[in-house]
């Protein structure tokens, strides 16, 4: 067992041991490990390219989506603008109509008020006339009951009457 001379025993066992190790690993370990690693590499590559494709698809879809969104937005804006216009118009129309209406109502009311006023005035006039007639009646009845006083009154009336 010198440093530089290989001993027979160890050489023998090394050949046997390494041989067994090699054949066992070659049969049971390396094909699994290397095969599975390359299989997985392929799988990962596939997955990556699939992911890349999906990513591109996603990009396209997103662009489409963006376009659609932009179009939708535009349309919405247009619709909103239209709606606003319609609303404004409706509002204005309603406003003018309402003011006209109110003006009409006010006019009618004014007319009615005037009419009522006139009616009231006429009624009051009539009332006053009636009352004055009644008063006059009662006064006359009183006056005429007294002979002297009625003569005085007739005289007074006679004086007042301008015969011209």
């Amino acid at each position: 067992m010198d440093l530089m001379t290989p001993s027979f025993g160890l050489t023998f066992w090394m050949l046997v041991g390494f041989g067994i190790l090699f054949f066992l690993l070659k049969k049971f370990a390396w094909p699994m490990i290397v095969g599975m690693i390359s299989k997985r590499e392929e799988y990962i590559q596939e997955q990556l390219s699939a992911a890349e494709m999906v990513r591109q698809d996603m990009g396209r879809l997103q662009a489409e989506h963006h376009k659609l969104l932009a179009e939708a937005k535009e349309e919405r804006d247009a619709i909103l603008a239209d709606a606003r216009k319609v609303r404004d118009k409706m509002y204005d129309d309603a406003k003018t109509k309402a003011s006209e209406e109110s003006r009409k109502i006010i006019e009618e009311a004014k007319k009615a008020i005037h009419f009522e006023k006139m009616k009231a005035v006429t009624e009051i006039k009539n009332e006053i006339a009636n009352m004055s007639i009644e008063i006059a009646q009662s006064v006359l009845q009183q006056e005429l009951s007294d002979k002297k006083k009625s003569e005085e009154l007739v005289e007074k009336l006679m004086q007042n009457i301008d015969l011209n």
Binding site: S7, F8, G9, W13, L25, W30
Partner: peptide, 23 residues
Amino acid sequence: DISITKNVCALFISIFLILWMFL
């Protein structure tokens, strides 16, 4: 002389270790 010397023993241990690891 094919004795199981220290190195042969170490060889066997390492072979078992490697086999265990990779299997």
